[in-house]
Write a protein that binds this DNA or RNA. Structure first.
Length: 385
RNA sequence: GUGACGAUGGUCCAACGGCAGGACGCCUGGUUGUGCCCCAGGAAGUGGGGGUUCAAGUCCCCCUCGCCACC
């Protein structure tokens, strides 16, 4: 079920709390659980749209805040909307700017009506409200818009989190009342920090509203990973069954698996692209720091188990020794190959997770994969399915 | 040959006669709704020999090497 025309969420199979589903969008189906690469300003950094397509990504994320400031939503619309602008033919989700309200804390003043802040680009004063965020996202032309929310930091006191919840609920209602694009879905966002009671209370409020999907926000914002897993274990399976569940800003291979096991359908994170640019590759046997001296003469691929174009391409693999050389020499190709690998890897990881759910062995797949990655195996086991 | 100047981690440079620092490079980590091509930590040094001094990278002498100028 989904509310907006052109969208449909179809759960095919369940295994414990995890779900194998299809998110049908006006721009094609997306198999879930899925990972959405982040393309903040209209590009998944370092990669062409063709390359991202080849990683099997069904949906990518763009950012309202950044595109609004530069080049401006009207420019994007004039150049074909976000899809034509960036030459991305598949589904696209836009973040609302809520996270930037949090990450730009030093430059902002927040009130019940909205947020005022200085542009990080030219210092100009700007104002963002729930209505304005929806209008901008409508102009950008994304397939899925997010409500403007208040996202407190991981160490915020309980009363600050409760205030953020009240504000996020009020803003959610205002977003729903604001006209958006034709066939543009809108997702609500649940706050509540690492407090289970607050999470459940806010989930109830947001789930009661006619959103096409529900997201968990305010996680992966500095809290302990165990706290995030605890909240996932307590909250994810209580999110609406018939709508997509989106865990914002996550994450590591381990968090994607743990989240999928807890019942999450969608993830996004800068980690594969950012870490790639900083020399870290994600592999089936754990993280690889390509900068390490041990890779100097290594003629093996980043990941022997990977079937991607970097490890097993037509022209042969990129060796670790070559990638280390490119990285240390600050060659652009290092960032490109590492990014392509990491995005492809997370795509493969989610594909394998979907396969495991289909076979009813999600939990053992996660346990074995985490062990091979040496990422720990304290999987949040479902207590009642 | 004569004279001037110089010699400090791998490299390029700092340091009043008073705890030898920095940049780059190197090594090791980190990065979770992108203000991140970034951040943190670490290893590594006074050309050689004598002298003055409580104390010398620093002042004096000799050697070696470099560099410049002039025969």
């Amino acid at each position: 079920m989904m509310i907006t025309d052109g969208f449909r969420f179809e759960v095919h199979q369940r295994d414990g709390r995890s779900r194998l589903a299809t998110l049908h969008t006006p721009r094609g189906p997306v198999a879930t659980p899925t990972f959405m690469p982040v393309g903040t300003i209209g590009t998944v950094k370092a990669l062409s749209a063709e390359e991202v397509l080849a990683t099997d990504a069904g949906i990518v994320l763009g950012n309202t805040y950044h595109l609004w400031l530069r080049p401006g939503a009207e420019v994007v619309r004039a150049l074909g909307g976000l899809h034509g602008f960036s030459r991305w033919p598949r589904a696209m989700l836009t973040d609302s700017g809520g996270f930037q309200v949090f990450s730009l804390a030093k430059l902002r003043t927040l009130d019940d009506d909205g947020v005022s802040f200085r542009s990080h680009i030219d210092g100009a004063m700007k104002r963002l409200t729930p209505e304005e965020s929806v209008r901008i996202q409508a102009t950008l032309g994304s397939d899925i818009a997010m409500v403007l929310d208040e996202c407190p930091p991981g160490d915020a006191p309980r009363d600050a989190i409760e205030r953020a919840m009240r504000r996020t609920t009020a803003w959610a209602a205002r977003c729903l009342k604001t006209p958006r694009g034709e066939r543009q879905a809108l997702f609500g966002i649940v706050q509540g920090g690492v407090h289970e009671d607050l999470r459940l209370r806010h989930l109830e409020e947001i789930a009661a509203m006619p959103f096409d999907g529900v997201a968990l926000g305010g996680l992966s914002v500095g809290e302990k990973v165990e706290d995030m897993h605890r909240i996932l274990d307590a909250v994810a399976h209580r999110m609406p069954e018939d709508r997509p569940r989106y865990l914002m800003g996550v994450g590591t291979p381990r968090d994607l698996l743990v989240g999928s096991l807890a019942g999450i359908d969608m993830f996004d994170c800068v980690l594969p692209t950012r870490n790639a640019r900083n020399g870290q590759a994600l592999t089936w046997t754990g993280r690889v720091n390509i900068k390490q001296a041990r890779n100097r003469l290594d003629d093996g691929p980043l990941d022997p188990r990977c079937d991607g174009p970097c490890c097993n391409g037509q022209g042969g693999r990129y060796t670790r020794g070559y990638l280390r050389h490119l990285f240390l020499a600050k060659e652009i190709l290092a960032a490109r190959v590492m990014s392509l690998h990491n995005v492809h890897f997370l795509g493969s990881l989610m594909k394998a997770m979907r396969g495991a759910i289909a076979q009813g062995r999600a939990e053992s797949f996660v346990r074995e994969t985490l062990r091979a990655m040496r990422e720990g195996d304290e999987v949040a086991a479902p207590d009642n399915g």
